[in-house]
Design a binder for these strands. Structure first.
Lengths: 215, 215
DNA sequence: CGGAAGGTCGGGAATTTTTCCCGGTTTGCC
DNA sequence: GGCAAACCGGGAAAAATTCCCGACCTTCCG
């Protein structure tokens, strides 16, 4: 029996997965979380084999959820299920310990199959993601590649319009620390103004520019 | 019996809704579509009471799907279920004929309730969306409207990537004056950071976003 | 015509933000 | 263990922004 934790901030989506997975023999959902904090708390009291994680959680990022859960349950196998195909998201997720990455365009059967493979210790990727990874490999190190996970997370929230203090409280950090990260990020990305920052973030799929700014 | 059409490009999400709704007495999913084209074709051959539409479809927009379906089935009641809370999305959807707008943060029970209310001809909105609508109503003709010509021009150049000193020399002004204008602009637009500025400018068609970011 | 209202332009000082530098802790890896 | 790198935040210097001010000009209207 493969025990599964769902991490997604959309109640309806969690509900859908629970019904889908519980109906499958050998799979069982043992917990749900809607935020990184909830995921961390859940990982303390509920042991599972596989975590199905959506990257774009409401307050914070799924990256944080992954890191937190793995810190508490190192044996947990993480399968990311995200709408975002941007290279930045994928590499950050893998670097944070995720074993696989599917998009939400995947068919239910693919997801179920993916969970079984992940539980068996294998890696699983959507075709689109494989594309992205290949491009990344050819491209070399994108500008965002040598940001640390924390820096990446701060940047992600920033370009989504969060204020520094908002990021701080959301990540349980001192505002001062966030500001220091921001300085580092601007240096690493060689961005003298915020527009350039946004441009870089958009290029690497950190934010969908049309969706974020378009009418 | 309320007959429902699902329009969402995520197979897993559609699957989740189908399971959720079919399990509910009095509700029945009679069709699914993953794109605006599919939705239009579906509306030709399948009569339904309510359409549950996700705005961000892969190829085209859910707005298109709404218009197309309503053209073919004017009696169809459209309930938008989107991740996006942006004012632009909401007003566009309503203007296109949607009767209600829920976010994907809604609980399954809210969605089911919403469908029943929509089918009864009522309007349904998430609390977040109500907020957005209220803000929109108060905002009136749009924030950019009461910028002075000079302020407007400064903003336009700024979002095109110009630096403050660049704007100054280009407009034959003291850099100091430009900085003063920027302060005024940020106040008038209630933008505490540059991302919000860019967001507003883009929304009002002030700038081609790709060119603005130096692509 | 006079005068109020609003836009334009910039200086100087206060204020805030950003940067730079520091040290301590933790983590992963030879 | 020792090393490198990430993580976290304090403090002070440096830079940017805001706030407040006055001057000039045009427009509108009683």
């Amino acid at each position: 029996m493969i025990r599964i934790i769902l991490v997604d901030d959309h109640a309806v989506v969690r509900n859908g997965y629970r019904r889908l997975l519980d109906a499958e023999p050998g799979l069982q959902v043992v917990g749900e979380a809607a935020s990184a904090d909830e995921a961390n708390a859940l990982a303390l009291r509920t042991v599972a084999d596989v975590a199905l994680v959506d990257l774009s959680l409401r307050g914070s990022s799924g990256i944080e959820a992954i890191r937190g859960m793995l810190a508490r349950q190192p044996a947990l196998k993480v399968l990311v299920l995200s709408m975002h195909e941007g290279a930045g998201h994928v590499t950050q997720a893998l670097r944070s310990g995720a074993l696989g990455y599917l998009t939400k365009y995947s068919e239910p059967a693919e997801v179920i199959d993916g969970i079984r493979r992940i539980a068996a210790g294998k890696r699983v990727f959507s075709p689109e993601i494989a594309q992205v990874l290949a491009a990344e490999a050819i491209d070399g190190d994108g500008a965002l590649a040598h940001l640390t996970p924390r820096e990446f997370e701060v940047l992600r929230m920033l370009v989504h319009g969060e204020s520094a203090s908002g990021i701080a409280s959301s990540m349980h950090l001192s505002p001062k620390t966030v500001l220091n990260y921001l300085t580092l990020i601007r240096q690493k990305l060689d961005a003298d103004n915020d527009f350039k920052l946004l441009h870089l973030a958009a290029r690497h799929g950190l934010v969908d520019i049309h969706h974020a700014l378009g009418a």
